[in-house]
Design a protein around this nucleic acid. Structure first.
Lengths: 119, 119
DNA sequence: TCTTTATTTCCAGTATCGTCGAAATATGGA
DNA sequence: TCCATATTTCGACGATACTGGAAATAAAGA
């Protein structure tokens, strides 16, 4: 990931409304949420949210698909992972002590994939 | 971590100059780098960098200590980890498939602490 | 104390961002 | 086609951020 890409993604997330929207979509999973439903839950005007989603979309952090009159947004998991990877990739170059907490975080992630560690 | 704290940290990182400075400090490890040395390496005026470091500092992403005429900056590893944790903490709430790449990232982290996984 | 070096603060011009009313566009149904 | 609903685009105002010159502050040595 290039630094400009990372800055674009970080800028997109560096806003309370957009970060809330993004996290809501992360929780919503692959089913995603319709734009209107998202606006209702976040309590923001539809056009304001539309702008926020547009910024997140250009940063690759959300994806969208039309379903009838609604537009369904989902989190861009792949690009989110790339960003986290970018933020971490130099963490051990000379400072291995920062690495331990990162592994703890991944291990704390309470999901089925936890089993993979023993494999 | 509260969302406002996360936004502050993300905003601090959402700037090419500051992100470069931060990553350089992450690589520099606990020894850190003097403000002037950092400015020289990044090719930015000392006062511009000072402002950048001030923003990163208020976000808790860097720390500083005076050493004679120089001020040494180091990465704020603890707070950086907290931010990453915040960005990840909901990753598995209904979308466990996003979790796998995160573990891969942590495992890819090539440092001594990798042994802990087998413990 | 005076000078040099290192860093920060102040300031102001410029640019970019955030917000939301109003209008435009897209879709499905009658 | 006409209407209702869902969403986006446009536009403009106010707010905030970025930059770097110049001045101020901090520290060490002569």
């Amino acid at each position: 990931m290039e630094i400009k890409t990372a800055v674009t993604a970080l800028s997109a997330l560096a806003h309370e409304g957009r970060l809330n929207a993004f996290r809501l979509l992360v929780r919503a999973g692959q089913d995603g949420l319709a734009s209107g439903e998202l606006a209702r839950r976040l309590g923001v005007p539809a056009n304001t949210l539309s702008g926020s989603l547009n910024i997140l979309s250009h940063a690759g952090l959300v994806e969208s698909r039309r379903a009838g009159k609604s537009v369904i947004y989902t989190a861009g998991y792949a690009n989110m992972t790339e960003l986290l990877q970018f933020l971490m990739e130099d963490c051990c170059a000379g400072a291995s002590d920062i690495c331990a907490p990162l592994i703890e975080i991944a291990l704390a992630c309470d999901c089925d994939d936890k089993d993979k560690i023993d494999a």
